[in-house]
Design a binder for these strands. Structure first.
Length: 416
RNA sequence: GUGGGCGUAGCUCAGCUGGUAGAGCACUCGGUUGUGGUCCGAGAUGUCGCGGGUUCGAGCCCCGUCGUUCACC
């Protein structure tokens, strides 16, 4: 089954035997993405510390950048003049851009706060920024940001986000949404979701206008974003509305699932949404990327993921191995002349030792981040690729049991 | 030689008019999920230069001594 838009399509390749989980293929003007796939994040048109060529070498099929950050620097016109995001950064494969919706949260109520995960652990002043502390303020029409770079004020609306994302020129764009935390009240979640829906319609309209206006450019797909926090009725309502939403004669090419998601209820929430959304369109889970969470996403129907976790933790010396997650700068690795993971096929593991990485981190050398990020991104990209292969082979559940049995064993011991 | 200052955690230093010690960095270990190259959290560390004395009690007061530094001869 294939959903076709000019230059963009998605085809499901696996037999429908494992519930929502599926393997598929996204086609964009800049090439294909075999799904499920993990899409590394290059917020400012670079995966921090790693060359685009190295990202291609480690198997990344696409990269995701951020409209808000690129709007502030260098500005969308520069990207447009450069020939688009991919051309600008010497990346000839598919690209995605996030809309800036996440910054509504990360610079708004979540600014310098705990955005996570366990809603019961924190006091409200630890999770909700005071009004005067925020760099983003939301109203029904849009968001006013105060730049974290120089304090200047900037206005984002659905239309402006689409204009910026069209100029950036990624193959897949996201509708401008309001991302909330689990700590917002239920009435606020309803309000935010209502805004997100109104903005979704405005995004479709502006997207259609810009697509016609820029018809000489490669087609850019638009994904709607499903919000609704931890509430089943809101999630299903959002999925139903956006799934069937049509305006200016077009509908969404795919969907993102957003929000600060609770680890424990991640699968349940994604399941509600993907049961309700049209099956034939691609689903992207925004911002999720811990190994155990990727399995949950895939088995609940997610096709693509993006996440900064692998690269962020790499910069502070945490690396994934099949036996869990280790901190390569720990004293125990000072004289360990083995690769990070002897089973890993990444550039770092083929050429460098734990002792060298340990030394580089302790010396605060730049290439420490490079080598650790290459390893972690390869680990996560390969993990999701393996899930795809096992979905096609019909052995997904065995693979999941084997992998997690080993990966989580270490944290189960958790005495060190 | 004389006079003064300073010797407290690996480092730089706080310790009010005496009540057996703290901070930052470093160190050890966690954490980070649509990225403000960060940030957050936890932990370990001392014969308070040395030896006497006064006191119920001294890192704080007194004497001596060693080291260091400054000023003056």
């Amino acid at each position: 089954m294939t959903n076709t838009a000019p230059g963009f399509s998605f085809a499901i390749e696996s037999a429908p035997e494992t519930g929502l989980a599926r393997a598929g293929r996204i086609t964009t003007p800049h090439g294909e993405i075999a799904t499920p796939a993990f899409i590394p994040v290059g917020t400012k048109a670079t995966v921090k510390s790693v060359l685009p060529e190295a990202m291609a070498d480690l198997g990344a099929q696409a990269l995701l950048a951020n409209a808000y950050h690129l709007y502030l620097q260098p500005g969308p016109d520069i990207l447009d003049e450069a020939g688009g995001l991919g051309k600008f950064m010497n990346w000839d494969k598919p690209t995605f851009t996030d809309s800036g919706g996440f910054q509504v949260l990360s610079l708004g109520v979540g600014f310098k706060k705990v955005l996570a995960m366990d809603a019961t652990t924190f006091r409200s002043d630890q999770v909700i920024a005071g009004n005067k502390d925020r760099l983003a303020h939301v109203d029904d029409d849009g968001v006013t940001f105060k730049s974290h770079l120089n304090g200047s004020f900037h206005r984002f609306t659905a239309e402006i986000s689409m204009q910026i994302q069209h100029k950036i020129g990624a193959d897949v764009m996201f509708a401008f949404d309001e991302c909330t935390t689990l700590h917002n009240t239920r009435p606020y979640q309803e309000l935010a979701m209502k805004r997100t829906h109104e903005w979704a319609i405005r995004c479709l309209d502006e997207h259609q206008r810009l697509t016609l206006e820029r018809s000489q450019k490669p087609y850019q797909a638009l994904y709607g974003v499903i919000q609704g926090a931890q509430y089943e009725d809101l999630r299903r309502e959002a999925a139903l509305d956006l799934g069937s939403m049509s305006s200016s004669g077009i509908s969404f090419d795919g969907f993102g699932i957003g929000g600060a998601l609770d680890k424990a209820s991640l699968g349940t929430i994604v399941g509600w949404v993907n049961e309700t959304l049209p099956q034939e369109k691609p689903k992207h889970l925004l911002g999720i990327g811990a190994p155990e969470d990727l399995f949950v996403g895939v088995e609940n129907g997610i096709d693509t993921f993006d996440c900064v976790l692998a690269s962020r933790i790499a910069r502070s010396s945490a690396v994934y191995i099949n036996d869990g997650r280790i901190n390569i700068s720990n004293a125990s690795y000072i004289r360990d002349f083995n690769p990070i993971d002897s089973e890993c096929d990444c550039y770092t593991c083929r050429n460098y030792t734990r002792a060298y990485l340990c030394h580089l981190f302790r010396g605060k050398e730049i290439v420490a981040a490079t080598l650790a990020t290459i390893h972690n991104e390869r680990f996560i990209v390969r993990l999701v690729d393996q899930m795809r292969a096992h979905l096609i082979a019909g052995t997904f559940h065995e693979f999941k049991a084997d992998f997690l049995g080993r990966y989580l064993h270490r944290s189960g011991q958790a005495s060190n």
